[in-house]
Amino acid sequence: MSKMENNNCATCPAHNLANLTKLGVDMTNFDYVVALAGNPNTGKSTVFNNMTGLRQHTGNWPGKTVGRAEGGFIYADKRFKIVDLPGTYSLLSTSTDEEIARDFILFGQPDVTVIVVDATRLERNLNLVLQVLEITERAVVCLNLMDEAKRHKIQIDYRTLSKSLGVPVVPTSARQGDGIKELLNSIYQVSIGEYKCKPHRISNEIKNVSNAVEKLNRIISEKFPQLPNTRWIALRLLEGDQKIIDAVRSGEIGSLSRSDEMVVK
């Protein structure tokens, strides 16, 4: 029943509560959950501290290599829980950190995933951004280190970037605290569904394999018509990703569909 209600509620939280609990996130006192992803060395933790105002207790998660921190903030009367994921270059490789980040975004379905990006090395950072946009429908790009970019005479047309990526892009200089308010506002708007993301999907044909991908894609979308990005699942299956194989086998993958598509305007 609750699922039906979800489908008709544009402002309801999108996260998968059961999975979040499994991942160890306590959501009792929060309305929305925000995941913070980004390459290492992009000032991710500065952004995190700025958003939480460092007043919040930042408990280290028991991760094997690098801990994940949790914090919270209140914006426009909504209570947000923010989970700092380990800094990674990619979500496709096999390291523990990348698996933690990938599983959280995919199975926890945070209401918003904020991707912190180093403005001085946009191209390299876009690798992670594009990968995140493949697996989530709700994201905000935080274009950090704008002060550094300025020092290096780099100019970024963030409006065009936002249009290309289909998600809000907020320029910030977290070290100075610039742009954090705007970032919070964007997070809020995406959370309550006021801003509808149309995430960019990898457009290029993938060398030598497009036939196989298309074939598999067709079968998957037949079985799970509500899934927004079946091509990505096809790619993961073709790479032999055991987590995804298991999720397809158990049918869990079907429950990860976003409800936005169902909303009738």
């Binding site: 946009l122 191209e123 390299r124 876009l126 690798n127 594009l130 005479k153 780099i154 100019q155 970024i156 047309d157 963030y158 065009t160 970037l161 290309s164 990526l165 960019h200 990898i202 457009s203 290029n204």
Partner: peptide, 12 residues
Amino acid sequence: DAEKISGKVVSF
């Protein structure tokens, strides 16, 4: 894709 996008938005 990353190259295409960043080529469009980054300038000196």
